[in-house]
């Protein structure tokens, strides 16, 4: 389940008003989430949650559900 907070961070970075982000959503499906923007989204998430990902952790995330799990594992609150 994708949290409202994560949705908000991603949609704000992509300048999207509304988009239904699900666990199985992959980056390429979301308008504007291209290979150049990818890093801005990662940086925005790190800043919003005050966490730091390892490179390999991000590469292993296949979809937004994986990204949510990764955030939860670093920030249990």
């Amino acid at each position: 389940m994708i949290s409202d907070r994560l949705k908000e961070v991603i949609l704000k970075e992509l300048e999207l008003k509304e988009y239904d982000l699900k666990d199985e959503t992959v980056a390429s499906e979301v308008p504007g989430w291209d290979s150049l923007n990818h890093i801005n989204i990662i940086l925005a998430i790190e800043k919003a949650y005050g966490i730091k990902f390892k490179g390999l952790e991000i590469l292993k995330a296949k979809n937004i559900g994986d990204l949510q799990k990764l955030i939860d594992s670093k920030n249990p609150l």
Partner: peptide, 21 residues
């Protein structure tokens, strides 16, 4: 190359933002 060269590099250089990209 996008998946196995560009992305890992871009992620490891992300603190440099656009310069890193």
């Amino acid at each position: 190359l996008l998946g196995y060269v560009f992305k890992p590099l871009q992620i490891s250089l992300r603190s440099l933002r656009k310069i890193g990209t």
